[in-house]
Amino acid sequence: MTEIIEILLVEDNPSDVKLAIRAFEKNNLANKVQVLRDGEEALEYLFGTGRYAEKTDRVQPKVILLDLKLPIIDGHEVLKRIKSDPQTRMIPVVVMTSSNYEKDMVESYQLGVNSYVQKPVDFEQFIEAVRQLGLYWLLVNKVPYTNE
């Protein structure tokens, strides 16, 4: 946990988490990943509340990978909260979901998502997608410096 968290992965499906982490590992990004299992935890982490109220060393991630189908608070709600709060509004959010429903995609963009990626069934494609996401959002994309 010495590495600075740069990727926040909000995903409740453990298989997907494992596959995602394997993908990050292949790209040497695994140590910068913080996995959260539901929407509530994600929000607590991001706003320093609940379970993460005491964690003062917490930093804002460079990108949030958000599944839509989450327990307790779903992905759309989480996205809405992130994008409606000035503290988190600047953080790029990439929705990564199994749904290829246009409705989900439209709603996500309306809530201000930065990118929408459908999780492919094919593992190699999945690895490739994660790699590109990491590269892009962590290395290519520039965000303004936020004053904490």
Partner: peptide
């Protein structure tokens, strides 16, 4: 349909992914 698209795909991805692993 929503469930199918979302929930049925995840296990497939897992099957595929872990077989690949």
């Amino acid at each position: 349909s929503y469930s199918v698209s979302h929930d049925l795909r995840a296990p497939l991805r897992a099957i595929n992914g872990f077989s690949q692993i």
